[in-house]
Amino acid sequence: MNRDNPEIDKKTKKFIQQTSLDSPGEDFTSNVMKRVEKEKVYGINKRDSNVWQIIMAIALPITYFVFQYLTNKGEATITQMIKDLETTTYFSFIETFSETLINDISFSPFIYMSILAIATLVIFDRFVVKLLHNYSHKG
């Protein structure tokens, strides 16, 4: 704007800045964010929910057997179950397993401890790892 009178520039700027900007609707930001949330998250790869469910499905019975073994009282149950597996159908094995699991949950403190441990791992995985990731990128 060198060729122009700087006085006009000043005046025009003053006049234009008096006019207000247009505003979109009140829910504009939330609408944009709803669309953004459907997009990929940068930085951390979002774990596939099916993979997570499979891991949990494997981890739960293993945890159950480990705690049964640690309490010693479960040793007979495991042995018995393996024997049953050889002689009975898979369906009846699952039925026996479920019954034993439900009965044990009702009184074994180790079951509650295992649930707590799993919950802690989930929290660690979902939040703490994310925080550490952010921290390491800033550092």
Binding site: L21, D22, S23, P24, F28, T29, V32, M33, V36, E37, E39, V41, Y42, G43, I44, K130, H133, N134, H137, K138
Partner: peptide, 20 residues
């Protein structure tokens, strides 16, 4: 870019009026 998707809302709030 570090995974905090919600931070984008600050950018939207800041620039929405001029963009609109």
């Amino acid at each position: 870019l570090n995974g905090d998707q919600s931070s984008f809302a600050f950018l939207v709030e800041r620039h929405k009026n001029m963009a609109f």
